[in-house]
Design a binder for these strands. Structure first.
Length: 465
RNA sequence: GGCCCGUUCGUCUAUCGGUUAGGACACCAGGUUUUCAACCUGGGAAGAGGGGUUCAACUCCCCUACGGGCUGCCA
């Protein structure tokens, strides 16, 4: 079945944290595969031994996991497959689609320096040399014997058909003089061996696709479906970098964005399905396709990210929210909620999750239920606790002692109380807020009383009065 | 320098030759309100510029401008 044979992959190089753009690339691959019952594979491109670190690999895995992107099978290390890459290079040699080049790096540098056009394409003199003339024991690289005339067509699901003139490409090196493979060879061999059917990656690889196709052709392998997606830019339209703010996926987790909101936002960044804006991951899985991907780079917009996260915060399941909150507290080096706080949180999230966009905000709004007595009112809310107000709070407690602890009954009592003192409800709500939360901005006073329960409510009112 | 890609409201985008160019975020005004948030109503806001093709172009073609990418024994 064609639809279930989809295999995609994410292939980052482990030289740092998981970049937000990489996270989105991974997300697109994941959505495409998972939405079609296919497989999503993960390969670490660690052939650059100088820059690759196990810490970076761990960070990438953590970032993907946080985003909720699970991969099939074991993580593949490209470096571990270097023998296989060399084997393919030698097979290309045997097939006559590659050749040994003995030109030294000094010779190539000299060629560039000597040519009027400093960007001239290097043509190896060994391309058609008789093997009998090969120097004995000298180091050599294996270069692809690329076609020098005609053009290579890249059939891309996002970019359309892209034409590359073959005479603008040099004979790329497949195997270095130390016997290690270059990226260009390794990706192709790995993608083929791993059965990758759809290559969805950043469009910085668009040109590379042409040269990679030559390897597929040389080996007689089926070319995968290409989908080169534009990179993400900063708010000023320039390539995303540190100065634009957070670029690492984990930074977003530490800032407290819920993963579901992050996924939704990233999915919509550079991809659209008519007017769909807010959707669950299941819905995204249903809708996602390659044709909805735009061709222009998209800019990161934190305001929209926050708005999207706000929707997801409100839609979240309470228990799941608690779990994610605890994870957030852990990564941001804060104390976890205690068992008692968890219970209270579960009872009261309903009245705060609709009004928070991030976990720090959620924590702030939920402060009234997480705090323990005595509640110390901040400067603004303290103003509501003047002598008159405290008197009212004092006269209120006996009534609460005997009230049915329901919203309707509390409402009746508080409404009657404010009427009795000839004040509007707002005048009564302010000191209540100060007493119960120590803040001026809080959830509804009824909700706070309901969540805190009769005893805690009365104790806090007595503290304030 | 060469080659490749891109360009619709401030931002993300819809449109796939014929629309008063739609939605969302943001912004502004008003409303609701128990503070904050939310919510409701309304508003301003776009086809980079220039040539074609066509009865008709945001949509197709060319040029220019601007942005990005590739041009490594990096990935």
């Amino acid at each position: 079945m064609a639809s279930s044979s989809v295999v995609t992959r994410f292939a980052p190089s482990p030289t740092g944290y998981l970049h937000i753009g990489g996270g989105r690339t991974a997300l697109f691959n994941w959505l495409y595969a998972r939405g079609r019952g296919g497989k999503f594979l993960l390969r670490i491109e660690d052939t650059d031994r100088e820059r690759s670190t196990p810490e970076a690999t761990a960070a990438i895995l953590r970032g993907l996991t946080w985003l909720g992107l699970d991969w099939d099978g074991e993580v593949v290390s490209q470096f571990d497959r270097k023998d296989r890459h060399a084997e393919v290079a030698h097979e290309m040699l045997a097939r006559g689609s590659a050749y040994k080049c003995f030109s030294t790096q000094e010779e190539i540098a000299a060629f560039r320096a000597a040519s009027t056009d400093s960007y001239a394409v290097f043509r190896s003199p060994w391309r058609d040399a008789d093997p009998a003339t090969h120097p004995d024991g000298a180091p050599y690289v294996i270069r692809m014997k690329a076609p020098q005339t005609g053009e290579t067509l890249i059939r891309d699901e996002v970019q359309g058909t892209v034409t590359v003139r073959n005479d603008t490409l040099d004979d790329m090196i497949c195997l270095r003089s130390d016997g290690t493979p270059t990226y260009m060879l390794a990706v192709v061999v790995d993608d083929h061996d791993m059965g990758v059917t759809h290559v969805i990656r950043g469009d910085d690889h668009l040109n590379n696709a042409g040269r990679q196709q030559m390897i597929y052709d040389a080996m007689g392998w089926a070319i995968p479906v290409w989908a080169h997606i534009p990179l993400i830019h900063g708010s000023d339209g320039k390539k995303l970098s540190k100065r634009h703010g957070a670029v690492g996926v984990e930074e977003y987790q530490r800032m407290g964005y819920p993963a579901a909101g992050m996924r939704n936002y990233l999915t919509r960044l550079g991809w659209a399905h008519l007017d769909s804006e807010i959707f669950t991951t299941d819905q995204a899985l249903q809708m996602f396709d390659l044709t909805g991907i735009g061709r222009a780079p998209a800019r990161l917009d934190f305001k929209k990210l926050e708005n999207t996260c706000g929707h997801h915060m409100g839609m979240a399941d309470d228990a799941a929210l608690l779990q994610e909150l605890q994870a957030f507290l852990a990564v941001s080096q804060r104390d976890p909620l205690t068992g008692a706080q968890e219970a209270l949180f579960l009872r009261g999230v309903y009245c705060v999750k609709d009004r928070a966009k991030t976990f720090p905000e959620l924590l702030d709004k939920a402060q009234f239920m997480l705090a323990s007595r005595p509640v110390v009112p901040d400067a603004d809310s303290a103003k509501a606790l003047d002598a008159v107000s405290r008197g009212i709070l004092k006269s209120l407690t006996p009534q609460l002692q005997n009230a049915y602890w329901t919203k309707a009954d509390l409402e009746a009592i508080l409404t009657a109380e404010s009427a009795a003192h000839g004040i509007g409800f707002g005048k009564l709500a302010a000191p209540l807020r100060a007493a119960l939360a120590g803040r001026t901005a809080t959830p509804s006073v009824y909700d706070m009383m309901l969540v805190l329960g009769r005893d805690e409510t009365i104790l806090r009112l007595e503290d304030a009065a």
